[in-house]
Design a binder for these strands. Structure first.
Length: 184
DNA sequence: GCCAACGTTGGC
DNA sequence: GCCAACGTTGGC
C-alpha cells in the first residue's frame, strides 16, 4: 500500500463544505469514544458522494468517481461532512490505508462505482457498477436468511454519508462483482 | 418534485 | 433531559 497523503481531518461528502461555518458543539467526548470503540475493528468504509451537479449556497456539490480519477494524484480531501456521527467516524476510526467503496448518491442510478483508499485516493473501478437496487435486493434476502448484507448501514442508517462496512459486507460485495446483476 | 425518515436545535 | 419544530438527506 503505497501512497498516502493524509488528509483526513477535513472530511467531506464531496461538496458541501461551507468552509467550516457549522459549529461543532455537540457530541464530542464520550460519545465519540463510544463510536471509536464500537468500530475499532472496522477497516472498510462506504463514502457517499453526489455525481450530479447540485448547488448549495452557490457551491456545486458534484463530485463523481470520475472526478476523483481526474484529480491531481487521484486524491481528494473528503471535506464537507457535517453530520456528527460521520465526522466522528472519520476522526476516530478511519485510518490512512483503509479501503472504501465510492458510492454515488442523490442521482438517477445510485450505487457503488469504485474502490478508494481512505486518503481519499482512487484505487480501481469496480468491474461493473453495483446499484443500490441490487444491493437492496440482497439486503432484503439476507434479512430472512441471515446473509452478510442483512445489517448493511446503507439500509439501516440511510442518512450516514460515511459508513462503516464490515469485512463480511465488503467481501460479499466484491464477490458479486463478477456476476451479472441479479436484479437491477 | 415529493416526502418519509432521520438529525439538530432550542425552549422548557 | 424531553420533545416539538424545523432542517436535511436521498430514494423514488
Amino acid at each position: 500500500m503505497a501512497t498516502i497523503t493524509v488528509a483526513k481531518v477535513g472530511s467531506k461528502r464531496k461538496a458541501a463544505s461551507s468552509g467550516g461555518s457549522k459549529t461543532l458543539k455537540n457530541s464530542l467526548g464520550k460519545k465519540s469514544s463510544v463510536t471509536a470503540n464500537k468500530n475499532s475493528h472496522i477497516t472498510r468504509w462506504l463514502l457517499k458522494s453526489e455525481p450530479d451537479s447540485r448547488f448549495e449556497n452557490g457551491v456545486d456539490m458534484k463530485f463523481s468517481f470520475d472526478d476523483l480519477k481526474s484529480s491531481p494524484d487521484q486524491i481528494t480531501q473528503w471535506d464537507g461532512v457535517r453530520n456528527f456521527q460521520a465526522r466522528n467516524l472519520m476522526r476516530d476510526c478511519m485510518k490512512v490505508g483503509h479501503l472504501g467503496f465510492f458510492y454515488h448518491s442523490n442521482c438517477k442510478n445510485p450505487g457503488i462505482a469504485g474502490i478508494v483508499k481512505v486518503d481519499v485516493k482512487y484505487v480501481r473501478d469496480l468491474k461493473r457498477f453495483i446499484s443500490l437496487s441490487e444491493l437492496k435486493s440482497y439486503h432484503e434476502k439476507h434479512k430472512t436468511n441471515d446473509g452478510p448484507l442483512k445489517n448493511m448501514r446503507l439500509f439501516t442508517n440511510r442518512r450516514l454519508s460515511v459508513q462503516p462496512v464490515t469485512d463480511e459486507e465488503y467481501e460479499f460485495i466484491l464477490s458479486i462483482e463478477d456476476q451479472e446483476p441479479k436484479k437491477k
